[in-house]
Every structure is written in structure tokens, then in C-alpha cells.
Amino acid sequence: MSENAPAADAAMPGSVARQPRRASLLRFLMRRHPLALGLVTLFLIAAIFGPWIAPHSMTDTDLGAALQGSSAEHLLGTDPLGRDVLSRLLGSTVVAAEAFLIVVLIGGIFGTLLGLLAGGLGGILDLVVSRVTEVVQGFPTVLVAIVIVALLGPSLVNAMVAVGIAAIPDFARVSRGVAIQLRDREFVQAARGLGASELRILRTEILPGMIGPLVVVASFDGAQAVMWEAALSFLGLGIQPPAPSFGSMLREAQQYLSIQPQLAIVTGVAVTAVILGLNLFGDAISDYFDGDGR
């Protein structure tokens, strides 16, 4: 952080534009955060290739093989309807990744846009956006989710739209903060002096400076999204049967706790690993952009 304003750096870590080149992110993660990298890599492999590597159908029932333990045929056993647990866990990972993407896209696009305009342009707009984000933040996510699902019917997209809306303030606040810091910096003033319009300045000078912090927000909110997806489908408000989801699988497993405990343990470990991995990854990214990675 050599350029201009160390004070701003302290106030808003990772927010400075035009920093010198860092070490490569991959190498940084391998050296400093191998667990995060490992878990997220597994998550990505499962999410992208899950449908192809699943040994069985995710939805085909086989009552003759219900509630089995691990076997060569079913590596992680079967659920109460005889469906293959490994295949359903892989399917749940795909659903979790979809939840991640929906939430980060909704929160990222709307939140960043609002924050950028509010912070970059200031004035009345800033006041309105700030107050509105505060109001949105005041609503409990699960309440918003239940209302949306009650109105539009339970589905993955409906549940995640609610979580995405709840994520907008996070993105808006961070991008607004960065925009406020950057809007009076020399390189921005230089652009202004050269006659660039405010909107062009927002796009070409300020937006690139907030990528780092936004990635950090995205990884945390994405991890939250995975957890909310599991929580809402546990309550039956998320993706509908027979599609698998961590939440609905946990709910089923819980019903058979003392008959087939393996079901709950395997599913619990899987969902814990995914959420832990994403959170550690968020921490790692945050470290990286904070400067540790240089």
C-alpha cells in the first residue's frame, strides 16, 4: 500500500486500487490456507461434476435396500426410501452451489450498483440508499424467506431470492465505503480533470478498486447462502422433493437417528465440510486482499 493514503487503508482493509502485484492467489492459498483450498476444491468438483460422478440416480427409490449402511454398492449407505446417499449428497452440493450463485448474483449486482452510485455520487441518493439498506438489514432473513415462499410457493429460486435480497445491504455498504474513499483520490480527480463524466469515472476508476473487498463479501455471503439453503429446505421451504438438498436430507436422517445413525453423521459431516470450507475460504481471501498475500 504504497501509493497515497495509508489512512484509508486502515479504515477499509483491502480497498485500495492500483496496488502492486501480489503473489498468485493459488500459491498464497496453498501456502497459507491449505484446508480452505482443499475443501473448496472438493466442493467445486462435486458441484460441477456431481451429476456425472454420482454412482446412482439421485431420485430412484429402492425400498428393498432402505436404510442400509456402507457397502460396495452404496458407499455411504442408503436413505429411508433406498436412495443412494453419496449420489444425493453430490446432488445436494449442486443445489448448494446454485444457492451460492443465485445469492451472490442478486446481492452482488444490486448491492454493488446501489453502493457504487450512492458512494460515488453522494447527496440525496446516498442518504436514501443508506437508509433503505439499513431497513432491509433490519428484516430477519428467515422471515423474508418465509414470506416470499408463502407468496410464490416453495422452490430453490424463491427461497434464495429472499436470501439474495438480504445480501444486498452487505454488498451495498462495502461498495459504498470504497467508493467514498476513492472518489476524491488523485487518480480520480485526474480523470475528472480530463473531462470524464461521473458515471464513466464510477465505471472505469472506482469499480475496479472494489473488486477485492467484494470478493470477500461474496465468499462470506455465499457461505451464508449455502447455510440458509440447508436451513430453509430443512423446514420444507427450499427445493422440493425428490430433489436432494443438505437440509431435507438432514431432516430425513434425523427421523431415523437411532435406527440408522450413519445417515445423519454422513450428511452432517458433508454439510459441515462445505460451509466450513466456504467460510475458511472467505477468511483466506480476506487475508489475501488485506495484504498478507503480497
Binding site: R251, Q254, A264, I265
Partner: peptide, 12 residues
């Protein structure tokens, strides 16, 4: 806390 099945599995 029904969702925390791991916990439940160990304490039930």
C-alpha cells in the same frame, strides 16, 4: 436445533 443433526446424533 433440529438442523444440527450431528450434535443431536451424539447427544440423543
Amino acid at each position: 436445533f433440529g438442523g444440527l443433526t450431528l450434535f443431536a446424533a451424539t447427544t440423543t
